[in-house]
Design a protein around this nucleic acid. Structure first.
Length: 466
DNA sequence: AATGCACTCACGCAAGTACT
DNA sequence: AGTACTTGCGTGAGTGCATT
C-alpha cells in the first residue's frame, strides 16, 4: 500500500521554525494519521463526458462562462453569449465581440433609462446598475475582455486536466467596472478609452517609449503613472523594464487569464494554476500537512498552507502569536485598541470590520429569515443555522460531536464544551491560545486543539523576558 | 515563468449572552 | 446543561511586488 508523502515542517522555507506540540495539562487532539492509499480518479466517470453542443442548449441560471469546451481537441470550443435569454454560440471570438455590440445597439444605444431608474447589465448573474447607455457599452466591453481571458484560462486547463468540468469554486465576484471611460494615466497622456482591451494595449504600448535613457542615477526605471485629483506619481521603481511592464498591469487592469468555470481573474498563469490545483477531487491531493493532515495537490500549495501554521509575530500586549505582522496589527486594532469605525445606520452599533457590520445588518435589520430548510418548513436567519439544522435530517446524524478528553461528557457545541472545561475541570486556556479551539478528527468528532507551531525567534524572545 | 512574502478581504468557527 | 441568537476575530484565498 502506497503511503501519502508526509510533509515535514523541516521543509518550510524558513529554517528558523520548529513545531511545538504543547501538551500542557491537556491531551492534544487526536494525532493525525497521514498514511493511506492515494485514490486513482477517473475524471470521466466522476464528471461525465464532455457535452458536445451541435444543438445549443439554453444558458442556465448558474452558468457563468463565456467559453465552453465541445470536445477534447484544442479547437473544440465555442464562445457562448451569456446575456440573459440569449445563449447564442460562436466559433470565433470576433463573432461574440460583434454580437455583444449588437446587443448594445439594439437594446441600449441612444436610449435613456426610465426616470428615477438605471440600466442593468443584461449579462446573466451580473446585473450591475449602470447610469447611461454609454456606461452599458463600456461595461459590456469589459465582459468581452473577460471572455478573451476565459479562453486563455481554458487553454491552461486543457494542458493540465483536459476533462475537468469544474474548478470547485463558486462564481467569483465580477468585473465591477461601472462604465466610466478608462483614462491613461501615463505621464502627459490622459487619452480616454471606451474599450478595456484597447486601453490595456495602449498602456502596455507606453513601454515601447521606455529606454535606458530613462534610468535614474540609481539605475532604476520609475513608473510614470499619475493618478488622483492631485495627480500624484506612482512611487514604484524597478531594476528592469520587464518588472515595470508587469507593474503597469495593476494600473491598466490587465490580467493573464480567467477561470473558465468560476470567472475569477488572475494576474499570471502561475496564480491561476494554484487556483486550479486547490480544489482537485479528493485523491488527487496526496501531500499531507504534518500538523493538521489537510491534503494538497502540490508542494507549493502545501508550503503556502504550512506557513500559516508557523506563528512568527507576537503581540506586544498579550501572548497571542500570529503568522504575519499585518495579522498582529489587525488583532491589536480590534482587541487592544478597540477601534470600531464601521457604524450601523439603523441602530448606531459599531464594528471593527466592515464585513461584521454587513452581517449585523443582514441579521438584525432584514425582517424575513431567508434560509429555508429543504426538508421541513423551518426558516433561519443565518446560513450556518440552516446547515446545522439540515444535518439533523440525516440518517447518521450524531448530535453531540464535541468530546471532553477528561471525562465521558459530549456536547453539541464547542461553546458548551468550553464552559464545561472552565466550570468542571478548571482548565485555563492552552499556552499561546486566546480561546479554546477544536479540531475535527478523522472519526468526525471534535477534540481540543493544542498543537501550535511557533518560530524560534519568538521562543527565544520569550526566554529572554522570563 | 516560478517562487517567496507580506498584505487585504471575505468567510466561517467559536465565544458571549440570554433564556429555558 | 441545552439551545438560539449575535458578535468577535482567526484563517484561507487571492493579490502585488520582488527575486530567482
Amino acid at each position: 500500500m502506497a503511503a501519502h508523502p508526509v510533509f515535514s515542517f523541516d521543509d518550510v522555507d524558513n529554517d528558523n521554525t520548529q513545531m511545538l506540540l504543547e501538551h500542557c495539562h491537556l491531551q492534544p487532539a487526536e494525532p493525525g494519521t497521514s498514511n493511506g492509499t492515494p485514490m486513482s480518479v477517473d475524471f470521466n466517470a466522476l464528471l461525465g463526458p464532455l457535452i458536445p453542443s451541435p444543438n445549443p442548449a439554453p444558458v442556465s441560471a448558474n452558468m457563468f462562462s463565456w467559453i465552453e469546451a465541445t470536445g477534447p481537441n484544442e479547437n473544440d470550443y465555442n464562445y457562448v453569449c451569456i446575456v440573459a435569454g440569449c445563449g447564442q454560440r460562436f466559433a470565433r471570438f470576433e463573432g461574440l465581440d460583434c454580437h455583444l455590440t449588437d446587443h448594445y445597439k439594439n437594446e441600449y444605444a441612444g436610449r435613456l433609462p426610465e426616470a428615477g431608474t438605471h440600466f442593468t447589465c443584461p449579462v446573466t448573474r451580473c446585473n450591475l446598475p449602470l447610469k447611461e447607455s454609454e456606461h452599458v457599452y463600456r461595461h459590456l466591453r469589459s465582459h468581452v475582455f473577460h471572455a478573451s481571458k476565459q479562453k486563455t484560462g481554458l487553454d491552461v486547463y486543457r494542458e493540465m486536466f483536459p476533462d475537468l468540468r469544474s474548478c470547485g469554486f463558486e462564481r467569483s465576484p465580477l468585473l465591477q467596472l461601472e462604465g466610466e471611460p478608462w483614462i491613461c494615466g501615463w505621464k502627459n497622456c490622459e487619452k480616454p478609452f471606451d474599450d478595456l482591451t484597447q486601453f490595456v494595449d495602449h498602456v502596455t504600448s507606453h513601454m515601447d517609449d521606455v529606454s535606458s535613457a530613462d534610468l535614474d542615477e540609481l539605475g532604476t526605471y520609475h513608473c510614470e503613472w499619475v493618478s488622483g485629483i492631485e495627480r500624484t506619481r506612482c512611487p514604484q521603481s524597478f531594476l528592469n523594464r520587464r518588472c515595470l511592464r508587469v507593474h503597469l498591469t495593476c494600473h491598466s487592469g490587465d490580467r493573464a487569464c480567467a477561470c473558465p468555470f468560476c470567472g475569477a481573474l488572475f494576474t499570471n498563469r502561475t496564480k491561476f494554476k494554484d487556483h486550479v490545483m486547490r480544489r482537485l477531487p479528493e485523491g488527487e491531493a496526496t501531500l499531507s500537512c504534518a500538523l493538521c493532515q489537510k491534503k494538497f495537490a502540490t508542494s507549493r500549495l502545501l508550503k503556502l498552507h504550512c506557513r500559516k501554521h508557523v506563528k512568527s509575530v507576537k503581540c506586544a500586549y498579550c501572548d497571542v502569536v500570529m503568522d504575519c505582522a499585518s495579522a498582529v496589527a489587525k488583532h491589536m486594532k480590534l482587541v487592544h485598541a478597540k477601534i470600531k469605525n464601521e457604524k450601523c445606520d439603523e441602530c448606531g452599533m459599531t464594528f471593527g470590520i466592515k464585513a461584521d457590520l454587513q452581517k449585523h445588518v443582514a441579521a438584525m435589520h432584514e425582517i424575513e429569515p431567508k434560509f429555508r430548510c429543504r426538508s421541513c418548513p423551518k426558516k433561519f436567519r443565518w446560513e450556518k443555522q440552516l446547515r446545522e439544522h439540515e444535518k439533523t435530517h440525516l440518517e447518521n446524524y450524531i448530535a453531540n460531536r464535541y468530546l471532553c478528553h477528561k471525562c465521558p461528557m459530549k456536547y453539541k457545541s464547542g461553546s458548551s464544551l468550553s464552559r464545561h472545561f472552565t466550570s468542571v475541570h478548571n482548565l485555563p486556556l492552552p499556552n499561546g491560545f486566546n480561546r479554546f479551539q477544536y479540531k475535527k478528527c478523522h472519526d468526525g468528532f471534535y477534540r481540543l486543539q493544542t498543537a501550535r507551531c511557533i518560530s524560534k525567534e519568538v521562543i527565544e524572545a520569550a526566554k529572554l523576558h522570563v
